[in-house]
Design a protein around this nucleic acid. Structure first.
Length: 282
DNA sequence: CGCCAGGCTTCTA
DNA sequence: TAGAAGCATGGC
């Protein structure tokens, strides 16, 4: 991995960063495809533009300081995915799936944004999740250059379910407010949660109304740095049963990278498996 | 139109 | 401890 600071952009020279896979593997809801090689979205109050090149990714919209303070970690650039894959390759299922999923990076998103986003994801579909989150930002987030930031817990904690009705989140609005209130009160302290072991961290997150194992595990993986967290949704359960012949990942060894393995499997499921699943129901 | 969506809470037995 | 209903809304 090589970083080159240009006048108006930062070039990340690596073959391990595919922006299409990274933004469309279901971990993040605020980036959109602009054209075949370009994605744009907002993270940490900045509008980012990313362009896929043959030998890396060109990143626009952040200064060098912002990059090293925030976005180097956001894009998980400190992790050696070659090393991770070398371990995961020993898995009899993953060895066939890794070529398909290569280039996915697990983003380190803002904890509050991640937790709220996956509260919204419950019993929902990805296009509508994106719509609701976008509306949440437009209505309650701070205006920034090129769009709206994700709202702060302080702002959301003052809102009522009637206030949130405009975003059409349905039954999830009360969960969003509960989450915001518990963050503001300090009952949910992300910094503290980060320091806990994964099981204690999960239990802490589950004290928020509307947060169960699945939502908590997504927040742990995509927002709190727990790369061994293994969220189990309907797709993953299907994959576990079909490919591993089990209901739980606990008997599988992903060498501490269960979350990355999970994301490789999930991306495979929603792209390749989805086609076959649709066919099987005809 | 009907089924279902990266689930969770609550109620029942 | 397990299973099912109910939840709001809209994508497909």
């Amino acid at each position: 991995m090589n970083i080159k600071i240009n006048k108006n952009s930062i070039f990340i020279n690596t073959d391990r960063f595919n922006i299409q896979k990274t933004f469309e593997c279901g971990q993040c809801f605020r980036f959109n495809k602009i054209d075949d090689n370009t994605y744009q979205g907002i993270a940490y109050n900045k509008l980012l533009t990313l362009v896929q090149k043959d030998d890396g990714v060109e990143l626009y919209g952040v200064t060098e300081n912002e990059f090293y303070n925030t976005f180097f970690d956001y894009f998980d650039l400190g992790r050696d995915y070659d090393k991770v894959d070398a371990l995961l390759q020993t898995d009899p299922v993953l060895c066939n799936i890794i070529p398909h999923s290569k280039g996915i990076r697990i983003l380190n998103q803002h904890p509050f944004e991640t937790l709220v986003s996956f509260i919204i994801s419950a019993s929902n579909n990805i296009p509508r999740i994106k719509k609701i989150i976008n509306s949440l930002c437009e209505n309650f987030g701070e205006q920034i250059t090129g769009g709206f930031a994700f709202p702060t817990p302080e702002v959301l904690a003052t809102k009522s379910t009637e206030d949130l009705a405009v975003i059409k989140a349905g039954f999830r609005d009360k969960y969003i407010i509960d989450c915001a209130k518990k963050v503001v009160s300090g009952q949910i302290d992300f910094k503290k949660i980060k320091s806990l072991n994964i099981n204690s961290a999960r239990e802490q997150l589950k004290t928020v109304n509307g947060v169960g194992d699945k939502v908590a595990d997504c927040a742990l993986l995509f927002g709190l740095g727990f790369c061994d967290s293994f969220p189990k949704d309907v797709w993953i359960k299907r994959i576990l049963k079909e490919y591993y012949g089990t209901d739980t990942e606990k008997e599988l060894n992903f060498y501490g990278y269960g979350g990355i393995a999970q994301q490789y499997l999930f991306y495979y499921a929603i792209t390749e498996e989805k086609k076959q699943y649709a066919l099987s129901k005809v």
